[in-house]
Simulated scan of single mutants.
Amino acid sequence: MQLDISFIMTAFLEILQALPLTLAITFVPLVIGFGIGIGIALIRLYEVRYIHRVAGFYVSFLRGTPLILHIYIVYLGIPMIFDRLSAHFGWGMNSSSIPLIIFIFIAFSLNAGAYMSEIIRSGILAVNKGEIEAAYSIGMTTRQAMWRIVLPQALLISLPNLCNMFIGLLHGSSLAFSISLLEINGKASIVASTNWKFVESYIAAAIIYWGLTLIAEQITGLLEKRLRTFAKGGVA
Rank of each mutant, 00 (worst) to 15 (best):
G211E: 00
G123M: 04
I124Q: 06
L3D: 09
A154Y: 09
L100G: 11
T194K: 09
V48R: 12
L222Q: 11
E14W: 04
P29N: 02
E200T: 02
S86C: 08
F12A: 05
Y115T: 01
I207L: 14
A204P: 03
R84G: 00
I78T: 00
M165L: 11
A24V: 13
I81Y: 12
F82P: 01
I219V: 08
A87K: 13
L85S: 05
L227C: 09
V54K: 00
I138L: 12
V191R: 10
R143E: 15
L23H: 04
A188F: 09
L30G: 09
A18H: 09
F105W: 11
P20D: 06
I120K: 04
L76P: 00
A135L: 08
I51Y: 11
R63F: 03
Y209G: 10
V54F: 14
I40C: 03
I207V: 14
W91A: 07
L169M: 08
I5R: 11
M140T: 13
R121M: 02
R143K: 15
I215L: 14
K232S: 13
R226Y: 15
A205F: 04
Q17I: 11
E47Q: 15
K197I: 10
M165W: 00
A112V: 12
L19V: 14
N161C: 07
A55E: 09
L223M: 14
L227R: 09
V191K: 10
I73S: 01
P66H: 07
F61D: 01
L67Y: 13
P29Y: 02
L181Q: 06
G56W: 08
T26C: 10
T10R: 12
G234M: 01
K129M: 00
S117K: 02
A231E: 09
H70G: 04
V199A: 12
